[in-house]
Design a protein around this nucleic acid. Structure first.
Lengths: 332, 332
DNA sequence: ATTGGCACTCGATAGCATCGAGTGCCAACC
DNA sequence: GGTTGGCACTCGATGCTATCGAGTGCCAAT
């Protein structure tokens, strides 16, 4: 792939991203980075099509980039200049005034990212696996129902309800809470130790049940996914059933989380079209980035749009927001 | 409006809901409840159109119900026979195995309702206004950050973060928590009393700040809205920009909450088309129902679909789910 | 190797005839 | 007098054909 072909490919991608129309040789030749005649462009385009970078919807139509074409374009992108000043200010302002509970903040972050890029945005919360227990408390909801509230070091709050056959007194609950606290606080959420004996068998029983319930909480991470800006999917595609497919898929949070994880595992931060295996999202690209809290990899954010996406802007936005989000979460 | 006209109107609505095609006199005459000839139907239809119940997209097309037509249809609906057995079982099963945190449950309920009706569903959580404080706890996140966690009697958990200029010791936090607890637990969330003096000025200061922060939490209810099944909006309409409009509006939670509230305030549980003032949802109808926890009005659920909605089924589903949800929340 | 020229392709658009579902009206009927 | 069959009429939908033009592939000239 010589430089001229690359320039032509870039021109096609850029123009197609803008116009959504197949691009003919004439348009490309008019592009400032391409200083050759339409005929030459045509010749090169034939080669590019043969090599799988372009695709012709039908004879006598212009060309459209294939997934491979976008891939080349993205890989050859300069490390990016970052966001425009308006957007940068928007991000700054957001994280200045970011407040409230972790979930709220993640939720709002997904909206921010959607607003910045004009695509749907996903924010996956800090994995509970790496957190420590900061606090455990049992609260009686009714004589036989106990709510166990756990505060994690990442700021998340998990909870679960226990049900018992016998009534529990407030004093038992209080002592059990103290005992449980002493045993578990400071331990990693992912591998809680056992709770030692306290001398009171009913407290021990209560603590054991509570410990197991808390340990179980670590597994389900499904609360920690926030998808924002889904309405923008409807703007990105004009085939109404593509919209439907994508929206349905976005509602299945485990698919989304898995998708982001897979992309990151593959060591890239852009996945284009069919590269990720999720069939209903074959017409979508995903731009992802992890974020770090306290220097530890904590969660992931991402943007999902059509393959014909404004990659440069999306990548810049995702990069900036992930950095800032990590920073904001580190500070709390 | 005599009985025959009503029957004709009903036939038009029912058929149109099924087919989405303008209904001609022939189809109506073939309807079992209408035992007259097409010519008679035509005469009646002219009258119905004059009275504003029907509307003709163009000469030589069939008729389509207007909002007023749907309204008559809905109002003349028998109090409903309830859900089919499959759906009923689905609901039963769901509430059997309903578990986990309040938010999770409300979220899942919105998905259940969407699955039952095949429209988008909204669940508004129990208003914190009516709840009592069940527990208050302060947890140190860092030397200068304190997380205040509040458990309410409706099962909700609210939290807020405080920031201080001086470091706080764990012991101060613990005593302050105890003092704050003693002062606030059992009080209504909506009108917290002041915290009396404890004898230690730093504890008093901390408690005062915490109390005010908690009191402020009561105001913002925005966490407690769950919209499920948004993808179904894309199935309900085929104009892609209607879809976009509706989705954008659904993302603005305060609009949705306001809409449900307004509808209920007007004392009905169905709002058709332009009846509610929300302009982008002019092509939508809403079916709502409140639910009660402990005999107290607690929250609202609703379903949002096209005006050409299967009202009977939607109303039945909303009714059943609201009842069951209230019951499930009462039991916890 | 590049380019201008040229015949060719084929989707898009427009014009036109046809079809048929549906209407309004009227006269006939019970 | 309400109901109905008959009938002329309307008008969107469908399908056909012609035209247009953006774009192509190829070739010969530079």
């Amino acid at each position: 792939m010589d430089e001229r072909k690359a320039a032509i490919l870039r021109a096609v991608v850029e123009t197609y991203v803008e116009t959504a129309q197949p691009i003919g040789s004439g348009h490309v030749a008019r592009h400032p980075d391409v200083a050759v005649s339409p005929a030459t462009v045509r010749n090169e385009m034939v080669a590019l099509e043969h090599e799988g970078y372009l695709y012709q919807p039908h004879t006598s139509a212009g060309r459209v980039p294939t997934d491979k074409g976008y891939r080349f374009f993205v890989d050859s992108l300069a490390p990016s200049g970052g966001l425009g000043s308006v957007e940068r200010q928007q991000v700054g302002q957001f994280f200045e005034s970011a407040h409230g509970a972790l979930e709220r903040m993640l939720h709002d972050t997904s909206r921010l990212l959607a607003a910045l890029t004009d695509y749907a945005a996903v924010v996956v919360g800090p994995a509970p696996e790496t957190s420590m227990l900061r606090s455990v408390q049992m609260v009686g909801l009714s004589p036989r129902h106990v709510l166990v509230v756990v505060v994690l070091s990442n700021g998340a709050i998990e909870r679960t309800t226990l049900e018992f056959d016998d009534d529990l007194g407030d004093d038992v609950l209080a002592s059990a809470t103290a005992h449980l606290s002493a045993a578990l606080v400071g331990q990693p959420f992912a591998q809680l130790g056992q709770v030692g004996p306290s001398g009171d068998s009913s407290i021990d029983a209560l603590c054991r049940v509570a410990r197991d319930a808390v340990a179980q909480l670590c597994g389900d991470e499904s609360d920690a996914v926030f998808v924002g800006g889904t309405a923008r999917v409807a703007q990105a595609f004009d085939a109404v059933d593509t919209v439907r497919n994508v929206l349905v898929t976005l509602e299945q949070q485990y698919v989304v989380v898995g998708l982001l994880r897979d992309v990151l595992d593959r060591g890239v931060n852009v996945s284009i079209g069919a590269e990720h295996g999720v069939e209903p999202l074959a017409e979508c690209s995903v731009v992802v980035a992890p974020y770090e809290v306290d220097g530890e990899l904590a969660g992931t954010i991402g943007v999902l749009g059509p393959t014909r996406m404004h990659y440069q802007q999306a990548m810049a936005a995702v990069a900036v927001v992930s950095r800032q989000l990590g920073q904001a979460l580190t500070e709390r």
